[in-house]
């Protein structure tokens, strides 16, 4: 008679398959999110050109209006605007991903500093400090001051990350507190498991899962902010949709497409990312996260 006991490998693959089926929506949404990243990052080869070489209007400009060859038209130096938009957007998204990743990492570290404390109100200091942040207009002024006064791109990413940590930290703390009331955690305490075991093996994985949803939601918000800063001229020496719109505004009579299409492109990309981020966060049951940017 055939041995009906499953091998270790087949049991593991069945468990993996079951888990994948449970999280199928999250996987699909994450794939769609990453595909949009991939599409942006496979843009042409204009990324080495500095904005100062693009944002000039020669005496005899080579610009062409939108057409079959150039969907969004061309710039004064003859560069394809659609390709420029993709490159600019890719840079903006990369910055946004970096800032939100760093910020969430910092927020997690901040929470972990207090998480092993046995007192009931272990996160109260953190929450009180975050409340001051609600008085700063989306804490944006700090970002504008530090990025606009001479800090450049490093200051922009670092400040955005700090702001994310400052505002998201209390949300993570609330997730920790809510997790501690879960029946399995209470049972674990009754069974005599140590606090460090419970936090590390039970609470942290659930929190990290939810953080993916916050990450997906933060990227379009930070990207929108970065575009605004570039529009104001605080985006340092690199391509950005905000910079393209500001340049287009200067030549609005001669080449109106330069002011119209970059913003339209950004709106479409951010809409797609915003919707995917929202759906991802709903699928992961992230819950309400206060928007501060």
């Amino acid at each position: 008679m055939k041995n009906r006991k499953q091998s270790k490998a087949s049991r593991h693959s069945l468990v993996l398959l079951a888990r994948a089926w449970e999280t199928r929506w999250v996987i699909l949404l994450a794939l769609a999110y990453l595909s949009s990243f991939g599409w942006l990052f496979t843009a042409g080869t204009v990324e080495d050109i500095r904005p100062s070489e693009i944002f000039i209007t020669p005496a005899d400009p080579e610009w062409k209006g939108p057409g079959k060859d150039h969907w969004f038209g061309t710039t004064g130096t003859g560069l394809d605007l659609f390709n420029l938009c993709r490159v600019s957007m890719a840079q903006t998204i990369a910055l946004a991903a970096l800032a939100s990743g760093l910020g969430l990492g910092l927020a997690f570290l901040e929470v972990m500093l207090f998480a092993f404390d046995r007192r009931e109100k272990r996160f109260s200091l953190m929450k009180s400090f975050a409340r001051i942040g609600t008085l700063m207009p989306c804490a944006l002024i700090l970002l504008i001051i530090l990025a606009g006064s001479g800090g450049g791109i490093t200051a922009l990413v670092a400040t955005a990350a700090l702001l994310v940590a400052w505002h998201i930290g209390p949300t993570l703390a609330i997730w920790f507190e809510e997790s501690e009331n879960r029946p399995d955690i209470v049972s674990a305490y009754i069974l005599g498991l140590s606090r460090s075991e419970i936090v590390t093996n039970r609470i942290v994985p659930a929190t990290i899962r939810k953080m993916v949803g916050v990450f997906a939601r933060l990227i379009p918000q930070i990207a929108l902010l970065e575009m605004g800063l570039s529009y104001l001229g605080f985006g340092s020496e690199r391509l950005s949709i905000g910079g393209l719109v500001a340049y287009g505004q200067q030549v609005i009579i001669e080449a109106p497409w330069l002011a119209v299409y970059p913003g339209l492109f950004a709106a479409v990309v951010l809409t797609v990312m915003g919707l995917l981020g929202w759906l991802t966060s709903r699928s992961l049951k992230t819950g309400r996260v206060r928007r501060f940017l």
């Binding site: 719109v245 950004a266 809409t271 915003g274």
Partner: peptide
């Protein structure tokens, strides 16, 4: 949600 993704500075221009 879609409308909120439109950059405000671009919209007023």
């Amino acid at each position: 949600l879609v409308l909120a993704s439109v950059p405000g500075f671009w919209w007023v221009i």
